[in-house]
Design a protein around this nucleic acid. Structure first.
Lengths: 180, 180
DNA sequence: ATTAAATCGGATAGTTTTATCCGATTTAAA
DNA sequence: TTTAAATCGGATAAAACTATCCGATTTAAT
């Protein structure tokens, strides 16, 4: 019944929240994602991890798990649905899910693009065209290095990789005090 | 007199604006600086380049050169003054300047920290402490690479390096059409 | 001394981002 | 069929960021 399902969620909640938090900090370092984008990434990871167990996640579970405002998260999930990243099922026992076979195909950059748009990539091409070949600015190559590793990372990292972090959760949980 | 000084500014204005724009695009790629931070970086570069010629830059010149709103820029400059990045001289013939000997010592990260704060660095240490040694998350090393190259870049690049871009300005100017 | 050119700082307005509310619709289960 | 659990979407509120205004103060030059 619902209660049992609910208990399961609560049990893994702490682990999930901590891992998501660590991930969130890691992300924070390399790129100032918007709040919207942060929530979206965390939500997608949570949904994917549920989907890997063949379960749907509903709005309340999601925003509780990733510690985000419910109504705002709802909007973001709607957008992810519209962009085809996740799917929604209306009505009782409904919720959000990701098709299992797609979990490994969805990359971080897909989520970022869906929510924050792809301005970064557009500007990227333009900017480099101007300052790369003929007239590199003094720091051109350093910027190049940073940018390419960021792009590579966003393109490489899949939802599956991120969701898989849950499996090693227990060991990480020991460090939770740092958070507070 | 003032007119001659003004003419000089106008002459180098186009070059400066273009270089600043290219730089701005490069920066945009790796880190979403706030507008405040972008203006600050560009302003600092402009002021430094003037100081290298032993001249002060006043608010009007600065915001004209870097294409930023005057009043808003004034606030940012005040903050840079408070943080000790640049100095201000009140009254007629006053303006902003950077001590020559300091130009090479001021790094990009100093400006970023002064305006956007140093949350990135704080979180950095914390985040890595939690997810590096014992329990690396699946993407830990990729994040590490991105983060360290970004940090290195911000720490290495000095105002002097950026201001020096002006010397090669003429060749870069030819590409200006891309901007519009 | 007076005047004009500057920065300084407080108050305020505009815009975007973040967040909430609520009624409409859909759906599974009793 | 009715009810409760969900998502959906439009409207709106709150907060943060961006931008402007204006009077006060400082200073160089006349």
């Amino acid at each position: 019944m619902y209660t049992r399902q609910h208990d399961t969620v609560i049990k893994s909640d702490k682990i999930i929240r901590f891992i998501l938090w660590v991930l969130y900090l890691c992300l924070k370092i390399v790129y100032m994602f918007s709040k919207a984008c942060e929530y979206s990434i965390r939500a997608a990871i949570f949904i994917a991890s549920r989907s890997m167990d063949g379960k749907r996640a509903n709005l309340k579970e999601i925003s509780a798990a990733i510690d985000s405002p419910e109504a705002f998260t709802a909007k973001l999930l709607q957008q992810l649905v519209r962009e085809g990243i996740i799917e929604s099922v209306k009505g009782a026992q409904g919720g959000f899910e990701v098709q299992k076979r797609r979990i490994s195909k969805i990359k971080l950059c897909d989520i970022v693009n869906a929510i924050d748009g792809d301005d970064i990539y557009k500007m990227c091409g333009l900017g480099l065209k101007a300052c790369s070949s003929k007239n590199p600015c003094p720091v051109h190559y350093k910027f190049m290095a940073v940018r390419s590793s960021l792009k590579e990372m966003l393109n490489d990292v899949s939802l599956q990789q991120l969701s898989q972090g849950f499996k090693e959760g227990k060991t990480l949980l020991a460090l939770k005090d740092i958070r507070t």
